[in-house]
Design a protein around this nucleic acid. Structure first.
Length: 550
DNA sequence: TCGAGCTGCGCG
DNA sequence: AAAGCGCGCAGCTCGA
């Protein structure tokens, strides 16, 4: 049994154009054993079976992808095999360029042969260089690693591969009902809107036409605005954004425009449901998505904070109307739990804010206290203030909007908030100074996930810098809980930042399972929130994700 | 007809 | 110019 990992690299074909380990086709497999003088290659994954069991772990550059394929083709056990991944490691270290070639140049000074030059050295040599590069890079980057972020991420890789194959079962009958209802709303609101604006005429489109004789001219068409055209609606209302918020404001009036705005709001809601959530899932048995820990080698997708992202389908932005149609397969129940106020608790812990810590320890209502302290008229406004201005660094204009006060009263509100959350505000300034010195934001101990902060990017920079440690700490707590669940054999289905979903067999002892689920999540949080203590985690169970009526 | 870029909106 | 942070995706717009 070799202690150093078996390096593996797959050459694949992507039929859909976008890489997807659940479907892509393997063309060649390369591997490199410890002490071997040469890399080996094969046209299929079969020969690997005789090699891998001599190793405790495998090493790849982008193991989510390669290991995901090997699991599919060879049933490589997701639980037994340790995984190392130079992509995940580089990500946790805050690297900008996550490509193997870029990292090789930066850390090893290796100038790789480009794809167009591969004829010169032959395909075998060309592909072998990636194996050597990965192996050497791993040794180099491991030496730079300080915190636990990478170890949590690499343990999560098999769990997320598992998740990406599992998915929810779709109840087509419920989906059909929901579709019919949404179509009815769409038709009704569109017709009502058309009746309302039938007489109006605005500029509908202007397209440039370049002719040799007359140079550039514009062809314009006029008519009533279409409900689905933001630019036409802008002209109709005489505004420069037709976002939901703006339309809600207009809808408060009592003229034709107010009615039109209300209709657009209803139409958009149902149209969004149909186009994004209902139609794409018709006649599909399962809803599954790919989870990303890191951006791709080319920098697409993924997050900068350590959060996961999900695509094809995105499992992290499903809406309640679709959640009602999603369920566990026959013989299973869906168990789901989320961490209440996890980000706020992390903010309190990492900034050592005495007030916040005390409030959490005594279980007081933070937003209500903020409301009273600032003299606001609703708890919702206070909550928006705490998040928008407190956690995410919103400025005076933003605060002015959310609390509905003129700008000249805002500075006073901000000042008062600083007196309440003293520790937090001090921490943000201190952290911002650190980031300015180093150009990196580092998440708290023991995670130490790094995010590169380009200091010349404007005001957004400070907000992103301050937000990173909070969001990062919260999600690594959730990730570690997932890792523990996975290791103990739970069937993970989904993660939505601070929420985890699993399947359990219906004939298990459900109360016991709920208790175990809660214990794993609570003890993981308690480990990293020693001063605040375990947040109570409420575990919900049922056949469907959401049982609420439409 | 294609796509890049934008707007709008779903989630935490 | 103004912007609360973090995502992915669908449709629209408009030039090529």
């Amino acid at each position: 049994m070799s202690s150093s990992p078996l390096v593996v690299d797959l050459e694949t074909q992507t039929p859909t154009g976008k890489p997807d380990f659940r479907e892509d086709i393997v063309e060649r497999v390369g591997w490199l054993e410890e002490g071997a003088k040469t890399a080996k290659w094969a046209g299929c994954v079969c020969p690997l079976a005789g090699v891998w069991y001599n190793h405790k772990s495998v090493l790849m550059h982008n193991a989510m992808y390669d290991f995901g394929i090997l699991h599919r083709l060879q049933r490589w056990d997701l639980h037994d095999m340790g995984v190392h991944d130079t992509l995940a490691l580089a990500y946790a270290l805050g690297e900008q360029d996550l490509s193997l070639k870029g990292l090789g140049q930066k850390y090893l000074g290796v100038q790789t042969v480009t794809h167009s030059q591969q004829e010169k050295i032959g395909p075998e040599q060309y592909h072998a260089q990636d194996l050597w590069l990965t192996q050497r890079l791993w040794g180099k980057l491991r030496g730079m690693e300080r915190g636990t972020a990478y170890d949590i991420d690499r343990a999560l890789i098999p769990a997320l591969i598992d998740c990406s194959y599992r998915g929810y079962e779709i109840d087509q009958e419920r989906l059909e009902q929901a579709t019919l209802a949404a179509e009815a709303t769409c038709g009704r609101t569109r017709k009502a809107f058309e009746r309302l604006v039938g007489e109006v005429s605005i500029l509908c489109s202007r397209r440039k036409k370049t002719t040799k004789k007359q140079g550039t001219e514009y062809i314009e068409t006029f008519g009533p605005p279409s409900i689905n055209s933001p630019i036409q609606l802008q002209r109709y209302f005489g505004i420069d954004s037709t976002s939901k918020e703006t339309l809600d404001e207009i809808a408060k009036g009592d003229d034709d425009q107010a009615l039109a705005a209300a209709l657009i709001g209803q139409w958009r809601k149902s149209d969004k449901l149909l186009d994004t959530y209902f139609y794409p899932n018709r006649r599909k048995e399962k809803l599954t998505g790919l989870f990303n820990i890191t951006p791709s080698e080319s920098g697409e997708g993924g997050t900068g904070t350590g959060r996961l992202s999900s695509e094809r389908s995105n499992m992290q932005n499903l809406t309640p109307a679709l959640e009602r149609c999603l369920r566990a397969p026959d013989g299973y129940l869906l168990m789901r739990a989320d961490y209440p106020q996890l980000e706020l608790r992390c903010a309190a812990e990492l900034s050592n804010d005495e007030y916040l810590i005390g409030a959490f320890q005594e279980g007081r209502d933070l937003h209500e206290e903020t409301r009273a302290w600032l003299g606001l008229d609703s708890r919702v406004k206070a909550k928006n203030f705490n998040f928008g201005a407190g956690l995410y660094g919103g400025g005076a204009d933003y605060v002015s909007r959310i609390v509905g006060r003129p700008r000249n009263q805002v500075a006073e509100l901000m000042q008062k908030h600083r007196q309440l959350w003293t520790g937090w505000w001090n921490w943000t300034e201190e952290h911002w100074r650190r980031v300015q010195r180093t150009s990196y934001s580092v998440a708290p101990e023991p995670f130490l996930h790094k995010r590169y902060i380009p200091l010349l990017a404007g005001d957004h920079t400070k907000k992103a810098a301050v937000n990173h440690p909070v969001q990062c700490m919260a999600v690594y707590i959730c990730k570690e809980a997932m890792v523990r669940l996975f290791r103990e054999g739970w069937l993970l289905v989904n993660q939505v930042h601070d929420a985890i979903h699993c399947y359990v067999p219906s004939d298990d002892n459900i109360d016991l399972r709920k208790q175990q689920f809660r214990e794993i999540m609570e003890s993981t949080a308690a480990k990293y929130l020693p001063r605040i203590g375990a947040a109570p985690v409420d575990v919900k169970v049922g056949r469907y994700w959401s049982q609420e009526e439409a």
